[in-house]
Structures are given as C-alpha cells and as structure tokens.
C-alpha cells in the first residue's frame, strides 16, 4: 500500500489523486455521451457543477452542525480545506437534491440524465478501488489462499484488487452496451445492479465489515436491497415499454 508518492520535495497523496483523476476522465466521457443522448454539454456541466457546489457547502454545514462547539472555539476552521471536516452523508444528500432541482429547471429527462451520468459513476468506482489500494483501507479478511497479500500484520485476501478488477470489468461491460442500449434508464440500472451484486459478493472477503443482527455484514444487506430495487425498476421500464409497443400495434 502506498498512501503517498514522493517526487523530489513534492508529496502527492495518491488516494485523493486517483479519485480526482477518475472524476476528470468520467466527466470527459459523460460530456461525450451526453451529446449522443441529446443533452447539451453545457447543461450536463451545469448539472454536475450544481451537484458539486451543493455537496461541498452541505458537507461543511453538516459537519459544523454535528460539532458546533469545535467551530465556536476555532471559527476560522470553517474555511479549512481539511477533507476530514466534511460530512459525506450531507454531501451526497445535497448533491442529489441540487442535481434534481437543476434537472427539473432545465427540463432534463430523469432516466436519460442518469444514463448519461453512468460513465462518470462507473469510472469513480474504479478510482475508489485504486484509492483503497493506495491507502490500505477496505482490506481483506485473513486467508491462506496462494494469492493472499501481507497487509496490516496478516496474510489477507487482496480485497482492494478484487474491487479494482470487478469495477474495471463493469466499465468494460457497460462500455459495450453504451451504443446499443436505447431504453432510457436501463444503462444506469444495469450499472447499479452490477455494482451492488459485486459488493454483495466481494464483501464476504473483507476484513473490516461492520456487522448487524449478530454476524451479518451490513454492506451486503444494503447491497441486496439496492440490487432488488434496481431489478424491480428495470422490470417496470421493460413492462412499460412493452405496453407502449402493444398499444402502438
């Protein structure tokens, strides 16, 4: 594991760098794909920018509300760039709400927009896996398999590499479907179904799972619910499409 890369006197933190790089690559792909799906590049950029700004502001506000005392003692910390002073749940909620609001104002089709964002999300999943490799987080459980890696004082499943392989496969699989998938929403839902299936399967090899109901891995339970929802939604889209076809004769 290599949290930093030092070139001369300059230190590069690899985890955030891999996330930024994957975000940038994803953005390029998304812009290209947006045009194919009839959404202007400008609208797509504004949508993503709205999400980022809403997410950034809300994540800092969310953190301040959790620890007001800490900021009363040091008010200048409000403007600190420390990533540890951001609340990820608030960020996600505000980003989604901000994007929904902009999407409605700009009259963007819900499912087509989600399809367009899929390349960005899929590449971010790859970036996240690389970030885990760099930081040593999301580590595997102890094992005796021949491909085990020595990490944090034990031979472990290379869980971060499993994550990277599967995330890359998902990108390749979706890449082959991008041009052929015409039904709005299906590309995004395929991504959600594949990613949640991967998490459901790979979580079993993790050594840092949080547990619920005794010894069940909570991430697997959440992944199963997400998988079921995505399959149900796909089924609904197919059903609606078939009804439309039969009505049109």
């Amino acid at each position: 594991m290599m949290p930093i890369l030092q070139i001369g006197p300059i230190v590069f933190p690899l985890s955030p760098m891999s996330l930024i790089l994957s975000f940038w690559l994803g953005l390029l792909l998304t812009e290209k794909y947006a045009i194919q799906r009839g959404i202007s590049e400008n609208k797509m950029n504004k949508l993503i920018f709205t999400g980022i700004i809403a997410g950034l502001i809300a994540s800092r506000v969310g953190y301040v509300l959790q620890f007001p005392h800490a900021f009363i003692q040091a008010p200048l910390s409000l403007f600190s760039p420390n990533p540890g002073l951001f609340d990820s749940f608030s960020a996600l909620a505000a980003a989604v709400l901000g994007m929904l609001a902009y999407g409605q104002r700009a009259r963007l089709s819900f499912w087509t927009t989600l399809d367009t964002l899929t390349p960005l999300l899929a590449l971010l999943a790859v970036g996240l896996a690389v970030a885990h490799i760099a930081s040593g987080e999301a580590f595997g459980s102890e094992t005796r398999v021949p491909w085990a890696i020595e990490l944090w004082g034990a031979k472990r499943h290379p869980a971060q590499f499993y994550e990277l392989i599967v995330a890359t496969l998902i990108v390749l699989l979706l890449g082959s479907k991008v041009k052929s998938e015409a039904m709005p929403g299906i590309l995004f839902l395929n991504f959600v179904a594949l990613t949640s299936s991967a998490r459901l399967f790979l979580e079993a090899f993790r050594g840092d799972s949080s547990l619920i109901f005794g010894n069940l891995r909570s991430a697997q339970v959440v992944a199963w619910i997400v998988l079921a929802t995505s399959l149900f939604s796909m089924e609904q889209i197919h059903k609606t499409e078939k009804e439309k076809e039969s009505r049109n004769g």
Binding site: V11, P13, H69, A70, A74, S77, S80, N82, G84
Partner: peptide, 16 residues
C-alpha cells in the same frame, strides 16, 4: 490523518 496542517476544529471534533 496523513499530512497536515490539521485545522483546530478537526482535532477537537475527533477528540470530542
């Protein structure tokens, strides 16, 4: 926390 400087609120919130 790798790297720094840590903001005062970061240290105090974690400690709290």
């Amino acid at each position: 926390v790798i790297g720094g400087p840590m903001a005062e609120a970061l240290v105090s919130s974690r400690v709290e």
